[in-house]
Design a binder for these strands. Structure first.
Lengths: 244, 244
DNA sequence: CGAGGGTTTGAAGTGCATCAAATAGTGTGG
DNA sequence: CCACACTATTTGATGCACTTCAAACCCTCG
């Protein structure tokens, strides 16, 4: 079936699956189904029985939980090439967070049972998952550091840098991938703080802001300002997404 | 050799190694050596070539990095049954953080190469590592949430709760495991803030503080106060440490 | 054009950080 | 066992960053 083989091809572009043999990938994709979802759709909520894991072809997805006193904690915001829900393999069979579409998305749903079985029987996949987990872990450490060491304008600058190809020289144009309110909560601040912090960043570094579009003359403008408060070698990398 | 077999016995108590066959554990422990270290000793610094990973028998170890502008970011503070340095398997062969003893410790050093080889050849161990990584990942998510949703007194209360056996009823005595300055940075606040926040917690919940010893009449005192701002089911669990 | 959400701006408050200094606690040598 | 030196902790005063509440503005889309 054509769509099946396209799914296999897509997964092969994702680091965690790229080293697998064709037949292994095909086993995982056997029960795959595509779904298109519009903004604001809830894919699942925390506590739902976990049957599928998901891979994003395009669009943006928000993972979050709600606290007892009614606030919302953002776990992560993901896009093309990212995978989510797969950690339920190591859980009690329920999703530990809710997932909502924040920008219209094309998504592949795959049975967790098939992934689990493949991991248990396929050393290569188990190792690839380990590598992927380790990378994610490192990134979370970085996230914690950012939130404690960087102030609001620096966090925004750092986020912008991670939206670029990080070896670029010369002028760059960045387009914010989702709305500023959500971006604010992604960075752990209020929308009002985001707005003011962006102004401060503009003033401090000379970037130009027009709505969701941001231009800068060179990346150094931002790295000098944002990366001073960080322990990482300059480019704070994000999880390697799809190579596409 | 007696000490060798004791090492094996100790590792077996740690979840990630507990399911391994005796021979596999012995291979990992082949080159083990014990070391006793006093407070303030640096085990390694960020960037050092990574040759060993470590398992803590007793004492406390601080993992940290330094930022370009000279601040210190605490990665984690670990104790009995915890393992560190093992993520260098998935790195470029250098430690991504520094490690310092903060309370006199007995530690086992084991060659990374042996662990790496065993993971690559032993499906069981690879799966156990995956489970362990997933648990750690979940805990880091929690850490991020705590820092954004809880205020300083709540974070302290939550930390105290995680020092208890969480199903206890009736009065409990808690002893702070390391000094308050370090504890403050572990919780992402200044020492002065810690001191004042502890007073506020005392006033709000009725706990009794005498130096590093804290008494409470029951855990509910604290959970009501601290866990409201959190999305987790009551007990915020820590990584399962040694079962000892 | 008008409704509604996203975004910005203003004013005021809160929590935490910072700087400075006092106090408590600990280990040392006498 | 005491006095001293040194560190950990607390307390006070002040400032700044971020939040909160409120209102205006802007943009898009029916």
């Amino acid at each position: 079936m054509l769509s099946r083989s396209k799914t296999v091809d897509f997964l092969r572009e994702i680091p965690v699956f790229s080293g697998l043999e064709q037949t292994a990938l095909e086993r995982i994709c056997m029960q795959a189904h595509d779904l298109d979802a519009v903004k604001a759709k809830l894919l699942f909520v925390s506590g739902d029985p976990a049957e599928f894991f998901y891979v994003i072809k395009s669009g943006w997805v928000k993972l979050f939980r709600e606290t007892l006193d009614g606030n919302v904690a953002i776990i992560d915001i993901l896009t093309t090439g990212h995978m989510f829900g797969e950690t339920s393999i190591f859980e009690d069979g329920a999703y530990p967070y809710s997932a909502e579409i924040v920008e219209d998305a094309a998504i592949i749903a795959l049975p967790l049972a098939d992934l689990k079985q493949e991991i248990e029987n396929n050393q290569q996949l188990a190792l690839a998952m380990l590598t992927s987990m380790a990378r994610y872990r490192k990134q979370q450490e970085q996230e914690i550091e950012h939130r404690t060491m960087q102030n609001a304008p620096q966090r925004i600058g750092c986020f912008l840098l991670r939206l670029t190809r990080q070896n670029e020289t010369g002028p760059v144009t960045i387009h914010l991938p989702y709305d500023k309110t959500l971006l604010a909560s992604r960075l752990g601040m209020q929308p009002e703080t985001f707005s003011r912090a962006l102004s401060k960043l503009k003033e401090a570094t000379g970037i130009r802001v027009k709505g969701a579009t941001i231009e800068l003359d060179n990346l150094e403008q931002l790295t000098n300002y944002s990366c001073a408060a960080c322990s990482s070698e300059f480019p704070c990398k994000d999880i390697a997404a799809s190579s596409s």
